[in-house]
Design a protein around this nucleic acid. Structure first.
Length: 280
DNA sequence: ATACGCCCCTGGTGGC
DNA sequence: TGCCACCAGGGGCGTA
């Protein structure tokens, strides 16, 4: 479930074992991801020291001593696996890139559907990368204010759900956290963006922040060092209030009959979940 | 400029 | 057991 909180958690887990380490070996098994892995990737990685990590939207930037950053995007099914060298575990399927560190750890990029990507960018020019240049504000940054969101929504007739998924409007939300934030803000996913009052926009900004913060906290607290027994980083169970719960009682409606339960609808090909009584 | 459908790819699930 | 339809956390592209 790689949306912003999962990507943040994965990044922290990677940093825990890779930051400050030297990469002794880099092995590309398969380079035809969403876009081809750049030819210079292995040369940039091999022998390099990992000197920093940063997340922007759903991208992880791993900064190397040579002045380049490796960009990872997990797509729908991507994950990072981590384990000690020499462990006798079977290699996961769909392992596309393997890194080994001087300290004896192995990190792997696994992505069955190959909607993810790996790219290389000059560290000094990270934000000018074509995939980062047009991204909207980070929802957890002070720059993400009701006034800013209001300016983005003004005059837009699209459903609010669609705009919150648009990474140019706000960076890092995906289908799950949009559903959860709209529920928390009591806004129906089909509401026209421009019809939101100032108060509703303020509620939405707060709801997005709270939803993401709690999810990051859950990810961090559920994994002592972020590495699960199978080596996967940053994937944690979370109790969604509405996502994936069609037909279930609404957690905030005291009597189930009062709203008839959580409903599912399809918007531009993707599922939305909401409470018909609370969300308007 | 904006909005929408379609596509990329593999795997899991549930029905027959 | 097999087959098939449907669904899935993302996002880019072409077309109106």
């Amino acid at each position: 479930m790689p949306e912003l909180p999962e990507v943040e958690t994965v990044m922290r887990g990677m940093a825990g074992h890779l930051l400050g380490q030297r990469i002794t070996r880099a092995d590309l098994r398969r380079g035809d991801l969403r876009r081809p892995v750049p030819p210079g990737l292995i040369a940039a990685l091999a022998g390099a020291e990992v000197i920093g990590f940063r997340r922007r939207a759903k991208y992880i930037l791993m900064r190397l001593g040579g002045g380049e950053s490796v960009m990872f995007h997990l797509g729908m099914s991507g994950r990072i696996v981590l384990g000690p060298l020499g462990a006798n575990e079977p290699e996961p399927r769909h392992l596309h890139l393997v890194l080994e560190t001087a300290a004896g750890w192995r990190a792997g990029f696994v992505d069955p559907r190959r909607f993810g990507l790996i790219d290389l960018v000059a560290t000094a020019a990270e934000d000018r990368h074509a995939l980062l240049a047009d991204l909207g504000p980070e929802p957890l940054s002070p720059a993400f204010t009701p006034a800013l969101l209001a300016a983005q929504l003004a005059g837009r007739r699209s459903p609010i759900k669609a705009l919150l998924l648009d990474q140019r409007v706000i960076a890092g939300l995906g289908n799950i956290y949009v559903a959860e934030a709209l529920f928390r803000a009591r806004l129906h996913p089909e509401r026209a963006a421009a019809s939101l009052s100032r108060a509703a926009i303020a509620r939405l900004v707060a709801a997005i922040r709270e939803t993401l913060r709690e999810a990051i906290a859950a990810g961090g607290s559920s994994l002592r060092d972020y590495v699960q027994p199978d080596g996967a980083l940053g994937y944690f169970q979370h109790a969604w209030r509405v996502y994936g719960r069609a037909g279930a009682p609404c957690p905030d409606c005291p009597g189930a009959p009062s709203c008839g339960g959580i409903r599912r609808l399809v918007q531009s090909g993707r599922s939305s979940f909401y409470c018909p009584r609370l969300q308007r």
